[in-house]
Computed example of a mutant assay.
Amino acid sequence: MPKTDFLTSMESTVRTNSLYAWILAARPKTLTGASVPVMIGTAMAFKDGGWENFQTIPALLCFLFAFIMQIDANFVNDYFDCLKGNDDSSTRLGPKRACSEGWITLPAMRTGLLITTLLACIAGLPLIYYGGWEMILIGALCVLFCFLYTTKLSYLGLGDVLVLVFFGIVPVCLTYYVILPHGLQAITWQVLLASVACGLVIDTLLIVNNYRDRENDKRDGKITLVVRIGEKRTEWLYLWLGILGFIIIAFLFISEGTKYSSCSVLMLVYFNLHKTTQGKMKRIKQGKELNNILGETARNMFIFGLLTTIGILISAI
């Protein structure tokens, strides 16, 4: 049986509010996007502080917080898009959603939202010890914008800005900050640049998602950046987001000196994969086949994070 037929068969037998239904709603594949900025921030902290100043517990807490917040964001998206009627199975091009398919009831999802939000707060609370009371404000903003993205901001074309901030700048810089001990926590320009590169590359995932859904979004009044700039400009934007991410990280490696400049060659693997995927995206243009491009983009994004992390660690030796 083909893989797609097998998955369809499995989904057709999902029991309401079952464990399998919750796993589908959590969208485990999206956790790679949550891990990439924490990986990069952790590597930068190790490079600048060394083993003697590296604190393992806050690093683990950052990974845990990021994973739970990603699941929370997926639940928010599932619940509120169902309420708005944006996940109609007859017109939806992306993967099926739990609430709209009846796998999870709306009251159960409200409970799930409450639990995951509380768990994220519990996971993030100990970071106060490592980063100070300002961690409360940062955590509160993460939770707030997790809800505002689906309910308001994505309809105004601001989703890409949120990705840059909350999947790039905030998690990379915050991870770096809390891992290092007091006195070594100053955010360097290298860390800030790495966080921007991370946000740009992760935004390619949102771009291709909205590129696939552009006609449905336009119909539903969801004015994403893709809807605003159109098909052709989006294809170029997707390409250049990845190229800029590649250039920034390559520059950071080169700036470490001749000894480490060879690390920039690692990023050519990502560059070639990204360019190839963009070519496929341009050929496909529309329809459910773009889900394959979404999968390739997620793969490329994780490879970018992995290669960047490896390069940073090599430069630390």
Rank of each mutant, 00 (worst) to 15 (best):
S18C: 09
G168I: 07
E134Y: 05
T111S: 15
N86E: 14
A34M: 05
I68Q: 07
M135Q: 08
F46N: 02
N292Q: 10
N272C: 06
V172E: 06
E235T: 07
K3Y: 09
L61A: 03
A140Q: 03
Q278T: 09
S195T: 07
F302C: 02
P107L: 11
V165T: 12
L184V: 00
T188V: 10
G230R: 09
F75I: 13
I317K: 09
F65M: 07
K275Q: 04
D81S: 14
K152N: 06
A73M: 10
D78T: 13
L7Y: 14
G295Q: 09
L31R: 04
T276Q: 13
L200M: 15
T175H: 04
L164T: 11
L313N: 01
G199K: 13
D5M: 05
G183V: 00
E52T: 04
L24P: 06
R27C: 11
A73P: 00
L118Q: 02
S255R: 15
A45E: 03
N300P: 05
I71T: 12
I247Q: 02
L239T: 14
Y211W: 13
T56C: 01
L118D: 04
I122N: 03
L290W: 07
M10K: 12
F271S: 01
A250P: 02
M301F: 08
I136E: 02
Q55F: 01
L156E: 05
I247D: 05
W189T: 13
D78V: 10
V227F: 11
Y176Q: 03
I284K: 05
I202Y: 10
L106S: 15
